[in-house]
Design a protein around this nucleic acid. Sequence first.
DNA 1: ACATCCCTAGA
DNA 2: TCTAGGGA
Length: 855
Amino acid sequence: MSINSISVLSEASASSYEERPSEEGKILYLISVIYDGEKKSAVLRFYNPNTGKMEFIQDKTGHKPYLLTDASPEDVERIVPENFKHRVLKAERVEKYDVLSDRKLVLTKVEVSDPLAIGGAKPKDLRTMLKEAGFNVWEANIKYYDSYTYDIGLIPGMPYRIKGDQIEPVASMNEEEKREIEKIFGEEGEKVLEIAFEMASMLRHPVPKMKCAAIDIEVAAPAFQVPSPSEPKRPIIAAAIVGDDIKRVYLLKRGSDVVLSEDFEVIQHEDEISLIREFINEIKKYAVIYTFNGDNFDLPYLAKRAKELGITNTGIRLETDRALLDEGIHIDLYKLFSNRSIQVYVFKNRYLGYTLDEVSEGLLGEKKVDIGSHDIANLPPDKLARYCIQDAKLTFSLANLLDNGLLKLLFIFSRISRMSLEEVSRHGISQWIKSMIYSMYRRRNWLIPNSEDVTRIRGSKTFSRAIIKGKKYMGAIVLAPRPGVHFKAAVLDFASMYPSIIKRWRISFETINCPHEECKMNKPVEELPHWVCSKGVGIVPEIIGVLRDLRVKMYKKMAKNERFSEEERNWFDTVQNSLKVLLNASYGVFGFEEFPLYSPPAAEMITAIARKAIMSAVREAENMSMSVIYGDTDSLFIEDAPIEKLQELERRVEASLGIDLELDKVYRYVVLSKLKKNYLGVTEDGHVDVKGLLGKKRNIPDIVKKAFFETLDELSRARNKEEFEESKKKIGEIIKKYVNRLRSREFEMEEVCFRSTLNKRLGDYVKTTPQHVKAARLLEERLNMRIVPGDVISYVKVTGREGVKPVELAGKQEVDVDKYIEIMRSTFQQILDALDLDFDSLAKGKTSESLEGFL
DNA sequence: ACATCCCTAGA
DNA sequence: TCTAGGGA
């Protein structure tokens, strides 16, 4: 049976769960594990798709917080003072496998009454007592709800069947699916097969439908004063909620204005207490509540203000840096959209800063209601209502991007990382990967190593020299491009190169520089002294390998297979995209100091193998007398070779290296500049890929960008060498047109703006004062604006001593036209070089041919 | 709080 | 030469 005929979702769709008769027990989705301080036990928090409500089930296993130590039970007894003894419940010998020494260790597991007894008790906690007595401790920094989740083998985001006291995972794969997994992973050993079964069964369950809404509140604060949740003195004057079935704003009545709107419902309250009560009650009706910065503002302010006014039972639980809802899942989109993996891989860098305005602008093309420098407190009620509801609307629209895929994405990450949706949406990818690895270690009874042990035992030194000063080790190779126009250029690449290397050479913090004498010969590259374990130790290469193969061999294929329904294909696509996000970061975390399994030797080994692999592929291609014109990290550009020859190259490289080289695409032609990471390629269907060229950078003025894209449009029309020569002639016309527009000042100020992000506070630019900083300072001085990191500054180049002004302060006559022609020149020269054209001659009206004749 | 490599402009 | 921002 092939992949094509598996029907993964039809059997167990969300709706069929809901229709099951109740005698089989009910199906609930595990959302999170929380700790109940009063009952001193873990509580499982489930979502019931039938009622739309949360249900709580207290732990019945008697699981307790614990740490591991090399102190004996007697040592523990001796060290712990009398007044702490009641919090230590048990100290017993346990066996753990230690991957760093590849040995079984006998350690003492110390169970305690509450999580704070391990880390956080005053005046001293157990962790500190043991360390001060000279003993080692392990697994003492893991949050209790995580520890519980791993030990019980729970998977947040998964459906469970609840029958009386029984909590069972919902039946997993059918025979067909098992056979398919066996076919893909069967030859890789039992360990791998087991992980593959587990992962695949996790990724087959759909995500339940959940009632969602977004909220936003406004507080009567004077202009330029940010209301603080720690001092909730100002009243809440507006609160909006927007969801599938609701668009409502609650207003505090001040004066006699009545607001009516056709787009949304307005409810006016005479007093703030009833406004807050009603708003909170409304929030409780939703399973998922989205906010933008609700962790640090909306929810804390709402909760504290409610308390100030004597309202109890808000259902909001405030923690140091997040706010959770008892009866719903709170997702703060500000934190989610600030996550680099989400920004780069999910949203392709389509937004720059992390404010609601910038994210909405980039992803939705919509903005907040402009109130200029007005005071929120003094806005007329209808304006206030619009302002507030617009924020909630934008937040809700952002949450529903990707055809509602955002929640699905979070569920998938939640399952793989074993973190709750609340956790996953608030933390970066290194935390996800950490949690994924920790859960596997617990399940296999492996000791989770301390970070210091990993670097001390397996090495922290790197031996390669980074090209860029300040970096820790050498990274990828970029081949020098052969400048010029190349027709029929094929692009081959190593599919998921770094994950493939991790799998194929088994590189990980676990395998690098292992303790075995006999492995010391196993050096994948000559340039590094590190060796790699050849005894099959380690679990990370297996996890990464399985995720990679599931993505490439199953989900990518199924996502494109027309035999599945659109809904199913959509799900497979979401799965393969999520896996890609995780895989993309799987190497980087080894080189990240704060990652608890940080391993510089493993990181530099991976990039060294990658360099060796690409160079050997280049040599192989050249041996076959193919012409390699460019390559970057994991890709090779080959000019005008027959498809059979390319396939033969793929075959040979795969045979000699053991990783897959694939034909990615063929360009009708590529224009390579002499610069690395700078080229454009026109595909067979006329689409233009632009990489790195100045013309596409977002900080350059629109007028330059327009000229550049008109040029690209011209180039994309050329189908062959003759037409290409024609296109070249037209480029001159375009350049002349724009240079003349600049000279005669026929432009809008908006078209000549540079837009640069401010990445630090204005006061922190001490070494130099870049132009956008100069402009930003003028905005503060002259227009009284508050400029914060993340703001995008629009400025124009003007004649005069300072050279720049914010666009708000500049007039058309002072624009320094010559500077703009310079920018135009450098932008165009990048491609003109490759076309044997010269900007100045074109701008003046001469062609390169006449110039050649002249010379 | 994944990594390194590359490019440009301006101080 | 270095800082800063943008990109692969």
